Amino acid sequence: MTTHENVQRMVLGDVEVLRIVEWQGAFRPARELLPTAPAEVWRENEEWLAPDHWEPATDRTVMALQTWVLRSAGRTVLVDTGIGDGRERPGAPEYHHWQGDFLGRLERAGVRPEDVDVVVNTHLHADHVGWNTRAAEGGAGAGAGTGAGGRGGAGAEDAWVPAFPRAQYLLPAADDAYYGPDNAYGGGRSEDDRLLYEDSVAPVHRAGQMVLWDGVHRIDEHLTLESAPGHTPGSAVLRLASGGDRAVFVGDLLHSPVQILDPAHNSCFCLDPRQAERSRRRILERAADERELVVPAHFGGSGVAEVRREGAGGLALSVRR
Rank of each mutant, 00 (worst) to 15 (best):
R9I: 02
V11D: 11
L12W: 02
L12G: 01
G13C: 10
D14V: 03
E16V: 04
E16T: 07
V17T: 03
L18R: 02
R19V: 00
V21K: 07
V21Q: 11
E22S: 13
E22G: 15
W23E: 13
F27G: 03
F27V: 03
F27N: 09
F27M: 06
P29V: 06
P29W: 05
A30V: 00
A30C: 08
A30Q: 02
A30D: 01
R31C: 02
E32D: 09
E32P: 01
L34G: 01
T36S: 12
T36V: 04
A37L: 04
A37W: 00
A37I: 00
P38G: 08
P38F: 06
A39I: 04
A39H: 07
E40R: 14
E40T: 13
E40S: 15
W42D: 00
R43N: 06
R43M: 03
E46T: 08
E47Q: 12
W48A: 01
L49K: 03
L49E: 02
A50C: 14
A50T: 09
P51L: 06
P51Y: 08
D52S: 09
H53V: 01
W54T: 02
E55N: 11
P56F: 04
A57P: 03
D59C: 00
D59N: 01
R60Y: 02
R60H: 08
R60G: 01
T61M: 04
T61D: 02
T61W: 01
T61G: 02
V62C: 05
M63Y: 09
M63A: 13
A64E: 13
L65A: 08
L65Y: 04
Q66V: 04
Q66G: 06
T67G: 05
W68K: 00
W68A: 00
V69L: 05
R71Y: 00
R71N: 00
R71G: 00
A73R: 09
G74W: 10
G74F: 11
R75V: 13
T76I: 14
T76C: 12
V79C: 06
D80H: 07
T81L: 10
G82Y: 11
G82L: 15
G82T: 11
I83M: 14
G84P: 04
D85C: 13
G86F: 13
G86Y: 11
R87P: 03
E88R: 15
P90M: 13
P90I: 13
A92K: 11
P93C: 05
Y95R: 14
W98C: 05
W98T: 06
W98F: 15
Q99V: 15
Q99S: 15
G100R: 12
D101W: 12
L103Q: 15
R105L: 14
R105H: 10
L106A: 12
E107P: 04
R108Y: 08
A109P: 10
A109L: 07
G110I: 05
V111S: 11
V111P: 05
